[in-house]
């Protein structure tokens, strides 16, 4: 079978976005139209006159992908082509920050589309600046660690909960470290009528600072520590959770793999900060029964 997402793109070696796009299309299938806001994935796949996409694809602006998706969906309906799936793939900045109004409106109105957020926890396309998805204490170029700072002072915005609160019939978290989980959830999301949301955790080799071969390993570790719980919500209720059980790992194992948390292991007071991150993981484990 021909890959719906093709070779020759300019993504970094070990690129999380490329994997996320590939898995998304494996789940959504060829009868899909993809909407992509501005970001790494858009830039690396479509340098005019080339494209890596073997499905119809459109990029408009940074903050409007969900609205463009709503428009595509409305057009398909009016033209009698309802069977085609509408899939928006946006980064965390395009989704949680600048595109918030657009995605909120689209979900509130109940358009039949699937929004996949590819969350690499910062603005990677512009050089690793902090976004609303950047985790607590991560060092980015606009939330750098320094003599008086441990990096980003705020925890991640809980976007899946916000989307569930919109009345979305299906909200799921997934990770590129669990491709089969992601493909399955995207497939399920695209089959369900109405606005569905899949939030995929996607470690970025360049932005997070780890070897290009470790993308999947880091992604798995986020899940195994409880920092990125994998769950599904249907009609606002958590219906399925991926258990970690006894295999749970301390957050330290996850943090030490990445340059963006390196300062926590060298700065005075770092230990207390790591403990605060452990508390975030512990709360996830408790809340979701991981």
């Amino acid at each position: 079978m021909k890959n719906l997402f093709d070779s020759g793109h300019r993504g970094c070696a070990g690129c999380c976005d490329a994997m996320a796009a590939k898995f998304t299309l494996m789940g959504a299938g060829e009868d899909s139209i993809v909407i992509n806001p501005t970001g790494c994935l858009e830039v690396m796949t479509t340098p005019f006159p080339e494209t890596s996409w073997n499905v119809p694809w459109i990029h408009s602006l940074f903050e409007n992908a969900a609205a463009v998706g709503a428009g595509v969906e409305a057009a398909l309906k009016s033209l009698g082509k309802e069977n085609t799936k509408v899939v928006v793939m946006g980064g965390d900045g395009a989704t949680l920050d600048i595109g918030m109004r657009s995605i909120s409106g689209t979900f509130e109105r109940g358009h039949d589309l699937t929004y996949v957020c590819i969350d690499n926890e910062a603005y990677m396309n512009t050089g690793v600046q902090r976004s609303g998805a950047t985790p607590y204490n991560a060092s980015t170029t606009t939330s750098p660690s320094g003599k008086v700072s441990f990096g980003n002072p705020r925890p991640k915005k809980n976007m899946p909960a916000i989307m569930a609160a919109h009345g979305a019939p299906y909200v799921a978290t997934t990770s590129i470290g669990f491709p089969k989980d992601m493909i399955k959830k995207v497939a399920k999301a695209t089959e369900i009528e109405g606005p569905t949301y899949v939030h995929a955790h996607a470690p970025c080799t360049t932005g997070w600072g780890f070897d290009t071969s470790k993308t999947v390993e880091v992604a798995k570790m986020a899940v195994q520590t409880g920092l990125w719980p994998l769950y599904e919500m249907e009609d606002g209720e958590v219906t399925k959770v991926r258990k970690i059980g006894k295999n749970v790992k301390p957050v330290e194992d996850y943090l030490k793999m990445q340059r963006r948390f390196k300062h926590l292991f060298t700065m005075e007071g770092g230990e207390e900060e790591i403990a605060k991150i452990q508390a975030i993981a512990d709360k996830n484990i408790e809340d979701f029964g991981l």
Binding site: K2, D6, S7, G8, H9, R10, T45, T46, P47, F48, P49, E50, T51, S52, W53, N54, V55
Partner: peptide, 12 residues
């Protein structure tokens, strides 16, 4: 408009 799958000309 760009024709599908054309980044294949870019041998990475």
């Amino acid at each position: 408009a760009c024709e599908a799958g054309t980044t294949r000309v870019n041998k990475t």
